[in-house]
Each structure stands twice: as C-alpha cells, then as structure tokens.
Amino acid sequence: MSTNEEELKALMTAGLDGDAAAYRALLERLSRHLRSYYRGRLTRVGRGSFEAEDLLQEALLAIHTRRHTYDRAELFTPWIHAIARYKLIDYLRRINSSRGDVPIEDVGELTSRADHDEVESSIDLKRLMARLPVKMQWAIQYVKLDGLSVAEAARRSGMTESAVKVSIHRGLKALSAAIRPEQKS
C-alpha cells in the first residue's frame, strides 16, 4: 500500500470526525493531485488550465458534500479516484466530447502526481450564492465565510441552530449543483 493512501486516509478519517486542520490538509493535497490529473486529461481535448481549475473546484465541492459516502473500512484512493473520474466523464459529456478520450488509468495514478501551479477559475462564488434561497445564503455567509459559530449565526439570522446546520448542508449541495453548468445539447 502506498504512503499516499495511508496518509490521505488518515487525514480523511480525522476530517470526518470533525478535525478541521486535518480536513484542510486533505483538501489542499487533493487539489494538487486533482489539478495535475485534470490538466493532463483536458489537454487531450484541447482545454487548458482554467477549465481544469473549474473542474477541480467542482470536484472539491462534490467531495465535500458527498464525504459521508466514504466507508472507513475501504481504501481511500479508489473513492477519490472514482469521484474524480466521474466528474471528468460528466464534464466531457457536457462539452460533447467522446468518452473514448478517457484512458483507463490505474487507481493510484491520481494521487501519484501533484501540481501546485494554481490559477483563478472562472467560477464566481458570489454570483452562485446569489441564486440560493436567502436563508442558505445567510447560513453559509456567517458560518462558512465569516467563520462565526453556528450559535452566533442562529442568533443573527433568527433561525434555530439546527436550521442553520441544515441550511449550510443544503446550500453547499445546491452550490455543488449550480457550479456544474448545464449540459450543452
């Protein structure tokens, strides 16, 4: 088993238990792996590093909102690889590119390469947020962007604490759907 698998799995498990520092380290490492993976794959269909960054951010949101689907009894690398690949195929279908462009790769290939050269994506978070119901906007703004506690956000918005949590959860899922542009037919 590769050290990457062990390290990433440890970070993921700690993150699932609520360890924010471990979770941040995980997402930072994954973003470098995913950047390299998507850049390599998108070059083949004539897309560049900006599209790759868009896709990477879409994948990060998907990873976050679907992290409960990771089963700790299983390896982590196949989980992340399946999501990365699913998002790639979904993207290629959107741009009407044939799935034949996706080579069959080894599961470990994703986590064996990294790319630190970040560019700014075309995704405008403020514009996407504006499409959400206002309670979801408040909850995400207060807790996830301003860093207020759930209790404080509940006090300011007049919602209950559980309503704030539900709004964050649903809001991030809605963002994850909105970040994915509609299929060009």
Partner: peptide
C-alpha cells in the same frame, strides 16, 4: 474564485460526519 478560497470556505466550522447515513 481561487481554489484556496474554496478550501477555506469548505473547511471552516466543519461538523463530524455520520458514516452510517448512506445505509
């Protein structure tokens, strides 16, 4: 949007996740 900003948002005030939720 910068990917670092997205990671900031996602990792701020996270909650523990119940892995039995799917089943």
């Amino acid at each position: 949007m910068k990917t670092g900003d997205l990671i900031n948002m996602l990792t701020t005030n996270i909650e523990a996740v119940d892995h039995r939720q799917v089943s």
